[in-house]
């Protein structure tokens, strides 16, 4: 059900690594009581032709941009699936365990 992708310029195949998941450990001490840090992952890499993990909108958008509309926002490598993170959060009454949804990236795609 995916659209076929075409490209305007076959010479533009030189590009960085393809859009994918990379580990990223961030400090949580400014936002939460615990844990002090967590691996939330991040998405990095190219979303140029051929789109290996784009949906139909990204394919149409890439086709539009490769047809000479360079000023349009091009597809971006972002998380498309997440996991929750268990943390110790806080309120006026003290500290409590809390589940934060969509906190850890699990899969990346071009959007």
């Amino acid at each position: 059900r995916k659209l076929r992708a075409t490209r305007a310029d076959p010479s533009s195949s030189v590009r960085g690594s393809v859009c994918g998941l990379r580990a990223l450990t961030v400090s949580l001490t400014k936002l939460l009581v615990g844990p002090s840090s967590a691996n939330i992952n991040n998405c990095h890499g190219s979303c140029a032709f051929p789109l290996t993990n784009g949906n139909n909108h990204a394919i149409l958008l890439n086709s539009h941009i490769e047809s000479g509309n360079a000023d349009e926002r091009s597809p971006c490598c972002v998380p498309v699936a997440y996991e929750a993170l268990e943390v110790v959060d806080w309120n006026a009454d003290g500290t409590f365990i809390s589940i934060k949804p969509d906190a850890v990236a699990r899969e990346c795609g071009c959007r």
Partner: peptide, 16 residues
Amino acid sequence: IEKSCPDETCKAQTRI
């Protein structure tokens, strides 16, 4: 949730 605890005693870390 912390997963790591290198110290023998419970050293205070301030938060927020």
